[in-house]
Every structure is written in C-alpha cells, then in structure tokens.
Nucleic acid binder design. Structure first.
Lengths: 346, 346
DNA sequence: TTTTAGCACTCTCTCTTGTTGAGTGCCGAA
DNA sequence: TTCGGCACTCAACAAGAGAGAGTGCTAAAA
C-alpha cells in the first residue's frame, strides 16, 4: 500500500475518497460527471476521467460495464480504509445510549447479549461478540457431589459468578465426607488463582510425589486434575441481527445468503475467525476475502478485542457488506469494545 | 370438511388427489391435459376441465392466471391431507438409519440435536425439536454451596442426568454444615419424586407448621422453596437446517424470508407454537396461516409430541413450504417422535 | 345427462427491436 | 496539463410479435 501512497498524488487520492464515499452512500456506480459536480472541486469531468483511468489501472476501482461509472474494488476499499478514511467520532447520543443499555444489564451473559444487539441495532448490520475466555476467570470454589456408580459431579465457581458443572468418572468410590475434605483442601490451595494457573499447579503437584502428601491430598489432586484440565468449555459467540444482512442487494444472491446463514448457524468457523483477532491491538478490518473465509467473500468484518482489567478476554465485531459505512462502524466497534470491557469489570 | 367429502364424488376427489400430488412433485401449475395423460384415467381433458371448475368453485384449487393450470389452495392441501393422502411407510433404510444415529448419541441434549438434524437432513426442510419438559424429570439430589454474602449456590440433579444451577439469596447466613444437613434432609424427603410433585410437597410443608419440625427442617424447606419453585428454566428448541428453506422458490421473497429467519433466531414464538402441540395425540399439521403465526404464512408445520415412559415431554416437527411431500414427511415425523422417545428412556 | 371434440380466447413467456441516457475514451485546442 | 467536443458503448426500458399453454364455452355424440 505504501507504493500506492507514493504513486498517487493528492488529487487522485481525494477523488478516490470522494468516489468511495459516494458509492457507500448511494450504492450506485459513480460517474465522472457526478464527481465533477462535487462542491469545491474545480475540475472538469474529462479530467476526472483521466484520473479514474489511472485508478482503474492501479486496481482500485473498476467499471461493471462500459457506461456505468466506477465502483471501488476490494483493494480500493482497503486503501480507502487505510489511508483516506476520516472516522467520525461516535455521536455522543449513541455513546451514552450504548453505555446505559450495556450497563443496566446484570450478569455477564446479559451484558454481552446486549452489546451484540446494540452493535447490530445501531449499524443495521450483524453484530457478534465472543464470550469471554474462561482462562481469565479465577478459581473461587470447587465442590464435589457423589452421584451413582463412582460418578462425581464437580461444581466449579469462578469469580465472575459463573458456575460450571462437569460429571467425572472416578476410579474409586468416595464418600460424601471424603469429597468434602478434598474440596476443602483444593479450595484452600487454589482460591484466587486463575484457572490456567490452577492447571499448572495441578500438573506440578502431580509430578512430584511429595512426602507430606497423604492419601486424601493425592485423591483431591487427582479429582482436581480431571475437573479442571478438561474443563475447557466450548467457546461461543452471541450473534445478533443476522437478518439485517438480507436487506442488502449485494448479498442477496440466494447461494451466497445460504452459505452466510449456514456459517452463522454453525458458528464454529466464525469463532475461529474471531479467535485470530484476539491478539490484535485495536480495531481490525477484513474486507471481502481478506478474512480467508469463503462465505464472507462479499462481506467486511470489523472487529475489536475487549479487555477486562487490561487483559484481553474476547472479541466483538460487526459483519456487513463490503459497502458499509466504515466511517461510522469502525469507531462504534472500537468504543463498544471499551464499554463492554468496562461493564464486565463489575 | 365433511360437507366437501359428501359434495365431491369419487372421481373429483381422485382428480384433486392427482393434481395435488403432481403439483407437489413438479411445482408447476397443473393443466387439464397433463392430468388427462395420467395413466388409467379414461377421461378427456375437457371433462377434467369441468371437474376442475367445480373444484375451483369449492375453493380447493385456483389459477394463478388465465392460462396457467391449477394450483392447490390451502383448503385444497387441507382436504388432501385429511381425506386423500396415502402416507408412505417410512423406508426401512431411513428408519434404521434414524435409529442408529439417534441411539448412538450420549446425553439427552446430544440425542435431541441429532434428531433435529436427521429431520432436516432427510426432508431437506427445517427440523425442530423442543427440549423435554423439566416437569417430567424427577428429583435425584440437591446440594447447597455457600457463596459470599448470604448467597447460596443450589445444585439440583435430576434423574435424566441433568444438572441445574441456581444462585439464591438467603435471609440468613448458613454454614457449610447447616447446608449439608438441610440437603440431606431434603434428599431423603424428595428423592424419586417428580419436580412438580416436589413443588407441591414443599408448598404443603410450608403451609402447616408442624410440631415436630425443628429449625433446620424449616430452613431446609425454605431453601428448597426458593430453589425448586423458581427453577423453571427457559424452554428451548433445537432448530436445524433452517437454511434449507432458502432453496424454495415459493418462500424466496426477501421480506418473507426475513420474517422467517427472525422468527427462527427469536425462538420464543416457535416455542409457544410447539407448546400448543404438546397435548395433541399424534401428528399435527398446520397448513399456511393455520398455525396462526404470521411468518409461517407460506409454510406448513408438521409436529408430533414425543413421550418418555408414556409421558409426553416434548414436541418435534418439520417446517417447510406448503408445497412439501406430506406423504413422506408425516410418517417421518411420526416415527422420529417414537424413536426419540425411545432413545431418551435410557 | 354426461362426455367429448373443437374452437376462440386469454395470458405468460420469450425474443426482437428500437430508443434513451449515462458514461466512457480519445483528440485536438487552449 | 486541462478541457470541451464528439463518437462510441452498453444497460435499461418499452413496445411488439409470436409461440405455447391452458381455459371456458358450445354443440354434437354417447
């Protein structure tokens, strides 16, 4: 892109910007005459045509057909987003609306659903939020309940007020009081540590058979091993407003739409896609096939990781057609990530 | 419909049957000549036209336009389904496939998902299964874990191997051993009873303050009251293959499709709709607006309740365009309900 | 009375044709 | 380098013609 940046003079870049903006707002291919009429642009349509021909040679725009004006290509959008875009600050009204709605919710799941719905509601696109990574949660309390036939129900409570159940099969029968002691021991050992820390600690304990460990402790550690190590719950996302995408002409091809909705209902691929955005620092933008995900070929994806206590725990984003109002969506995604992180602190 | 049954002679009914079958398989309006060519029908197209005119007067079929053959109306479908349809027994191969796939799953959620997917997979329509009603589950074990600030985590295990969590706020602080005794007491009292029975028992216990009740028992009952009474978890459904519906011409109107998918992602209304089918004895069929649900105006819904141990616990069904192969779908829904009920027994 | 063949009629669908308008590329002059 | 002028291209629309499918009606045959 830096090559393009040098190659294009100020005027060409300005024209490209106007063209993309115009196309985003109208959805019609933009002709030279339309741009020439643009205020404050002392330039004739013929000249604009020269510039447009150059832009087309560079692969930034193209004509659907001979007499149809120009439309940005994906590279064009990319250049626009990288170098030309002037984002609007989110309107104060929206921002406060966002905060109010997100913060009035109780429970992390509620908060997240609300964030997803707000993203889709405000943009009229599809909103998506990944559930916070479990790793960041810390151990608060574990408890065991004997079920039948050596099965034990493990109840693990984390400090984000989430409760996790898991049934494990034990090698020997435990009495309720055996289990109680084991739980007490583990609670004293692990409380306050993050789950990943706990996993490490367990591995460590199991490795060295210490002298002062009695049978109860060994049992407890073994139980804990089964409970925590396999405790990775399936990741999940909350998707809202998918049907908004049905309104867009450019996506309305039946086949395309079908693949898109299959992707939405499968979730798995989208989860992976979002996962890859976790490490990014701020807003990330995938235009068309940049996401590397076929069903999103005609879509753009704007994501931002959100953090609780400076620790990135999840990702949220917006999915829409490549022709979307980037200037509004990008800052909205950005600010929503911050609001969400803030709201999850409590 | 009985009126129609008398009004129509055998031949008219046979013709209507042929017409509907033909339309279902071809999707094209059926003309008199097409039917006349039908084998074993010693009748000219002109005669057929007379009959068709009658059928049209009765509102069973109609012409999209002057020269376009006839198409069944919703009443036509209704009459067809009620009086003319000869259902095919499900193919043996499908049946065994069904059984194998459903029964190999472990855990009720898995089984249900599998049933839903099979319904949609075999019919190429949308499959839906409501999760089994909690009421039928019986109490196996309850346990309490003290959290902070008078909050108590209730873990309730039912005999269908499902675990239910709930955090309640208690009026006083309980120690772990208080809670342990309460749990023991409740377990001895309630084990084996259905949850609705348990609710009744609790209400009963609370009503009469018995002499022999000590403080622990009173506390226990109070805890149980909070735990069980409000324990109605939101009902849910498992929907599969919704995107299959995108392939149908007759549903492909963007607006229609949008409403349909909004309904699918909201779930709430569909849950209610299915709920109303719980009490029906066998397969129920809603054609077009018969379901009373706007978004399904162009769809038919075939449902059947499924039962575990002779107790109806849920409903499953198939959603598709009114033009669907009723002869195959109806028996499939029927048999799937049975297979599912059977599989859930274990 | 019922059935049938014949026929005029209607309507959609498709193909063709012409027209319009938008927009382009190129060229020569400023 | 910029600009006006101009020929050219192409999609979109409309109008018209013809084919094909299917109907309703009628009058004759069964």
């Amino acid at each position: 892109m830096s090559i393009l940046n040098e190659e294009l003079n100020e005027r060409s870049r300005h024209l490209l910007k106007l063209l993309v903006e115009r196309y985003i707002s109208d959805g019609q291919p933009v002709g030279s005459a339309v741009l020439a009429r643009e205020k404050g642009l002392g330039i004739s349509s013929a000249t604009i045509r020269h510039v447009m021909a150059d832009l087309e040679d560079l692969g930034l725009i193209h004509s659907p057909h001979t007499s149809a004006g120009r439309v940005p290509t994906n590279s064009g959008y990319r250049f626009f987003v990288d170098s030309l875009l002037t984002v609007r600050r989110p309107e104060q009204k929206q921002l406060s609306e966002l905060k109010v709605h997100v913060e009035k919710e109780r429970g992390s799941n509620q908060i997240i659903t609300s964030a997803s719905q707000l993203l889709s509601g405000i943009t009229h696109l599809a909103g998506v939020v990944s559930l916070p990574k479990r790793e960041s949660a810390s151990f608060r309390q574990i408890d065991f309940m004997p079920l039948s036939k050596g099965k034990v129900l493990v109840v693990l409570v984390t400090n984000d007020d989430e409760v996790h159940n898991r049934v494990i099969q034990t090698s020997k029968e435990f009495t309720a009081s055996d289990l109680q002691s084991a739980a007490n021991y583990l609670n004293s050992l692990f409380v306050g540590h993050s789950l990943s820390q706990v996993a490490t600690m367990i591995a460590h304990e199991m490795a060295e058979t210490r002298q002062q460990m009695n049978q109860m402790m060994i049992d407890a550690i073994n139980l804990a091993h089964q409970s925590v190590n396999n405790a990775q719950e399936p990741e999940d996302i909350v998707l809202s407003g998918a049907t908004n995408l049905m309104d867009f002409q450019e996506l309305s091809d039946v086949n395309n739409m079908r693949h898109l909705f299959e992707a939405f209902s499968q979730k798995q691929d989208i989860i992976q896609l979002l996962d890859r955005c976790m490490n990014a620092d701020g807003v990330q933008i995938f235009i068309g096939e940049e996401s590397g995900y076929q069903p999103f070929g005609a879509c753009s994806l704007i994501t931002a990781p959100y953090a609780v206590d400076n620790q990135t725990v999840g990702v949220l984003g917006v999915i829409g057609p490549t022709r979307m109002p980037y200037d509004k969506v990008i800052p909205l995604v950005d600010v929503t990530a911050k609001v969400l992180g803030e709201a999850l602190k409590s």
